[in-house]
Design a protein around this nucleic acid. Sequence first.
RNA 1: GCGGGUGUGGCGGAACUGGCAGACGCGCUAGACUUAGGAUCUAGUUCUUAGGAGUGCAGGUUCAAUUCCUGUCACCCGCACCA
Length: 689
Amino acid sequence: MKQGGFSFDFDRIVDTTNKDYYKWTQWIFVQLFKKGLAYRDKTYINFCPSCKVVLSNEESQGGKCDRCDTVVVQKEKDVWFLKITDHAERLLEGLKKLDTLPRIRIEQENWIGKSTGAHVDFRVKDTNESLMVFTTRPDTLFGSTFMVIAPEHGIIERQKAKINNLDEIYNYLEGAKLKTEFERVELAKDKTGVRIDGLVAINPVNNKEIPIFVADYVMIGYGTGAIMAVPGHDTRDYEFATKYNLDIVEVISGGDISKEAYTDSNEGILVNSGIINGLNVPEAIDKIIEFLEENKIGTKAINYKMKDWAFNRQRYWGEPIPIIHCPKCGMVHVPEEDLPVVLPQVEKFEPSDEGESPLSTIEEFINVKCPKCGTMAKRETDTMPQWAGSSWYFLRYTDPRNDDKLADFDKLKYWLQVDWYNGGMEHVTRHVIYSRFWHQFLFDIGVVPTEEPYKKRTAQGLILGSDGYKMSKSKGNIVNPLEIIEAYGADTLRLYILFIGDYEQSTPWNENGVKGARRFLDKLARLEEKVSDQMNDSYQTILHKTIKMVSEDIESVKFNTAIAKLMTLVNEFTKADHIFKEDFEALLKIVNPFAPHICEELWERIGHNEDMVNAPWPEYDESKLVESTIEMVVSINGKVRDKIKLPLDTPKEEVIVLAKSTDKITSLLEGKEIRMIIVVRNKLVNIVI
RNA sequence: GCGGGUGUGGCGGAACUGGCAGACGCGCUAGACUUAGGAUCUAGUUCUUAGGAGUGCAGGUUCAAUUCCUGUCACCCGCACCA
């Protein structure tokens, strides 16, 4: 970093693995625990048999471990959760105020996955329980002709005495278990399921008895793990109903349900639907929810795809969770004054085969007195994920050595919000959601002065290997920046990376391009020989234009075009027979952000003792931006035919006369009738024939 | 399937509210200086049947379209039996 010449304040270094830092990560956890936002629960978790580690949903996308690609298995375990779902709505709301890339915004919205609809209770006949479903389309309730529950749904065990085909069902559940989440999704085309013989549900709006199926196309993790199937208006239900010969009822007119489900039904009118017949869809939804609530069979509901954040890991490298398990008091947090709970020295860094944390074998770490009652108790041995420390580190920059607080409130007030947070594309989704959640929480307990951490959030494009693929060790297409600095210099590297392409776009690395950047710097250095005390008018316009455009490009993060313009200017200076010293200084100042080392060097060589970084940014002279003579394009029917040189702001009538009089244009116009002439001031003349 | 993004020379990429398509760089070609050139400089470099054609493809609006509209294709990314 230092070699690259970045202007970071290295006095404010923050290291999330340092105990003076993670003390505050643990402190935040304690606050979350006190507010009930950190809780422990037994659940099926994603477990990677290779890393021997519990994974969050975020880390096991596609059913594979995001570190080693091993297929993830489900395992029952005690899991620490952070109740991020409590913030679902706020996280979504706050997004509106965040200035960010469309892509990031969409990913966030997707991740939160809000949908509105209703919860509806379906009584199960001859039992004392009912199945609750979530639906976004309560208006189609009258068309629900069967129900489907997820294989993991608890009702199977609870009502097994009533089920006649238990063997068949268990058999199916076994099969479903063997499939990974990934396969269940992949083999989506062919729907399988088993009817639960013995259990019948009652559709609460028309009291019809409908069969219940168990099928793995319903997920336990989303909604309630049970659905009301409306085959007439849902493709999956339609497919299932056709396969198992179930009733298909049309409740929204407009389609042809003998051929396929009519899903594009927002236009249609309700039919076969009792009290909501004749209404359009939005009206029907309102009315049926009203009905459900009046009769206590359902409620309006909002569902989020996002789940609580599984927060414990069994890795060594992580902040120990500051909780003590006391036989008398239960779970007690470590008192704030006793923080940090320091990560002990350990011989074995690997978790046990059972997936226990490596800390679990260290007696002197585990055994501890309960801070409440003094009884011998045991420490929690799981640690936090890497996300913990990275969810708030930027706050610590404001006050990196504070030992009393995670950061002084007044300092936070001075610095926050972060004006612009930029980071790598690969971490964006999770980092944005986690850090905003923590920040909102810290705001709620009065630790930070703003509800949202940053105003603007972007991510820069990746630099790919020269083969156009993502750089990776296995592909052998890695470029080591230090080697480039060694061979071409830090300025070259900086310049090339910024010149290579659009800031947000991924671009392949090209060593030849690096040479080009170096050539530019060599050219710049050679200009020094031409510096003189004599003014030079020959390049004034382009100089001032470049100052203006480079300033603007930097503001709008278009570094590639800024550098292109600098190159043009240097080419222009190369042609000049001498360069006025002040003009050369102006050039150095605008090249400086891209190539600071060489500019400082040249700055000194032309007689400055003071550092260049403190020199003011040059200003352009408005009067020098435009030349007095301009070139106008003369086109016929939109095709460029000739160019004429004219004084700036020549009146329209004169322009027309001059345009028509050139040799080329006269010959082309011969014998033709001019239908109209369009003049764009100082730009072009278009003659239509 | 849904959503987002991107399609411009041999390559990376420019082109503000429609107004000279290909800036700038790489690569390539020829020449100069040189024992030499992988240094430097100069000239050229979208294609071309030399009239034109040309910004993924097909239409449309306009005096004028990479830019606006309609349709369509391809690639990349994200989500995904989401009820």
